[in-house]
Amino acid sequence: MRRCLRDNSLTLTFATAFLLTLAGQALVGHAEFNNGLLVDSLAPVSLTAYLMSSDFAVDVTENWQSEYLQFFLYIFGTVWLLQRGSPESKEMDRAGPEDDETQRVGAHARDDSPRWAAAEGIRQKLFSRSLGLVMAALFLLSWLAQSVAGTAAYNELRLRNLQPPVDWSGYILSADFWSRTLQNWQSELIAVASMAILSVYLRQRGSPESKPVGAPHHATGVEG
C-alpha cells in the first residue's frame, strides 16, 4: 500500500489538491454569486443550486481550457521550438519529430515498447502524437463547454438587466467570452515563457524540471 502511494504520489497529491481547491472555489463562488443576487434584490440560492448553475460551470471550464491549451502548445511547440540552455528544450540539432531509430518506432521498437509503437501505419502515427492530441481534444472540449455554459450565464445577467438574450454564435463573438478566454491564455503563456527562460539560469535541486545544480547555463535538454 505504502509503495503504491509512493509510486503514484505525484498524481495523487495533485488530484487531491484539485478536489480541495474545486470545493473551495464552489464555496466562495456560491457566496460571491449570492452577493450579486442580493445587490439586485433577488433571493439567494442554495449551494446545490449554485453547483448546478451555468455560472459555476463557466468559471470552472474557462480555467480548464487554458490549462489544457498550455500543455497542448507546450507539447507540440517543443517538437520544433528550442531554447538554448533550457532543460525544457531539446538540444539544438534535434528540432522536429526525429528519426524512427531515436524514437524506437516500427522496426526499431524494442521488446518492452508499447504495441502501437511497433505497429506501422495509422496506429503508430496516432500513438506517436497521442499525448498532444488528447490535450488538444480536452482543450477544445473545455473551450466548447465554456462557450455553452458562458452563453447561459451571460443571458441570465442580460435578462436580469432587462436586455434580450443572445444565442451561442452571438456569445462567442462577445467581449465577455473573449475577456474570459484571453485573461486565462495570457497568464498561461507568460508562465510558459518564464519557465523556458528562467530554467536556463536558475536551478531546483532534485527536480526533473531543472538541470542538475552544477550543469552549465549553456547545457540544453539536460534534466536533473
Binding site: 503504491c4 498524481t11 488530484a15 463557466v58 470552472v60 480548464w64 473545455s142 463547454a145 455554459a149 447561459a152
Partner: peptide, 30 residues
C-alpha cells in the same frame, strides 16, 4: 502498474464526465 493504469483511466473519465456535466448545465439553462 495496475493502480497507475486505473489512475490514468480515472483521470480521463473525471475530466471528460466533468466537461459533459458542465456542457449539459449550459444547455439546460438556455
Amino acid at each position: 502498474m495496475t493502480v497507475t493504469k486505473a489512475l490514468f483511466v480515472l483521470c480521463l473519465t473525471v475530466v471528460v464526465c466533468g466537461l459533459a456535466y458542465f456542457t449539459a448545465l449550459g444547455l439546460t439553462h438556455r
